[in-house]
Design a binder for these strands. Structure first.
Length: 112
DNA sequence: AAGCTGACAGCAG
DNA sequence: CCTGCTGCCAGCT
């Protein structure tokens, strides 16, 4: 993974997020060792639309469980639709049972 | 080569 | 309790 950029690392982690679960920018940043780069994680997600295979960016939200990047999905409600389609309860761009569906890579991710 | 930008997070007022 | 300001790191112009 050393030939991959920081973005690629972020994309890899996001792809490991199972359906019906979500994670946060800070959790990914901390997992990669750079806790302060949570903003970079967000920026990486913004660029994820240009990346193949497609990254399930809708499973990444901020620490409050708010769908901050929904605007980047083309339709303002597409991100919410995708999450609800996976069984996640979303109300007014806010994940309700956020604590239950939260998926922490540092504790639940199993490295190959 | 230098500065600006950004789907955040945390602490202070 | 809610609103605002600062710190942070990698990419891009």
């Amino acid at each position: 993974m050393e030939n991959d950029s920081f973005y690629e690392k972020v994309y890899w982690v996001v792809r490991q997020v199972p359906a019906g679960r979500v994670t946060t920018y800070g959790a990914i940043a901390a997992f990669l060792g750079t806790k302060g780069s949570s903003r970079v994680v967000g920026y990486a997600m913004g660029a994820s639309v240009h990346v193949l295979p497609r990254v399930p960016a809708h499973r990444v939200v901020n620490r409050t469980g708010l769908l901050t990047g929904k605007q980047r999905f083309g339709s303002p409600h597409l991100m919410q639709q995708l999450l609800e389609n996976e069984g996640i309860v979303v109300e007014d761009d806010q994940i309700k049972n956020f604590k239950e569906v939260f998926w922490d890579p540092a504790t639940e991710l199993i490295l190959p």
